[in-house]
Computed example of a mutant assay.
Amino acid sequence: MFLTTLLDEIELIAGAGDADDALDLAKRLIRSNQVAWACEIRRSVSNGELDADRLIAAGENIRQKSMQDSEQARRDLRKATRDLLAVGGDNIITRSARELARYI
């Protein structure tokens, strides 16, 4: 599930949904192997009642974690590209890496 779609659905459930909607979302996330996100969503339901504030907080946590993961991936790619350029010589791979380095 795309992050923006997930966050939109969380907002909809928090505003007009109920506990069953949140549990259904958690099940769909589990089926798509996004268990950590599903656990965040599941924690917003207690005794059959939806805690909308906690659901919104879960969405914010998911958003922040995704941004951190994306930034870390960018840093890792930048480092790998620099390492390749430092020891790769001059070939088609390093020329491509030089082009890629301009965008990361």
Rank of each mutant, 00 (worst) to 15 (best):
L50Y: 06
D18M: 09
A58M: 01
R102T: 11
A22M: 05
D20P: 00
D90S: 14
G59P: 01
F2C: 08
R95N: 12
R75T: 11
N33W: 01
L84V: 10
K65S: 13
D20A: 13
I30V: 13
A36V: 12
D53Q: 09
I41W: 02
R95C: 12
R102N: 10
D90H: 12
E9V: 02
N33P: 01
R28V: 04
A101C: 12
D83L: 12
A52E: 00
S96G: 04
F2H: 11
T4P: 00
L85C: 07
L3F: 04
K79F: 08
E40Y: 05
A57G: 00
S44M: 04
R82H: 08
A26C: 04
A58G: 01
T94W: 06
R63D: 09
Q34E: 15
Q68N: 06
A26L: 03
V35Q: 09
S96W: 02
Q34H: 13
Q64R: 08
V35S: 06
R42D: 11
I10R: 05
I41T: 11
R31L: 13
R98F: 03
L84G: 04
G48M: 03
T5H: 09
E99K: 13
S44Q: 01
D24C: 06
A52Y: 00
E9A: 06
I10H: 02
S96M: 12
G59Y: 03
R75K: 15
R31D: 11
R98V: 03
L6D: 00
D24S: 09
E9N: 13
N47D: 10
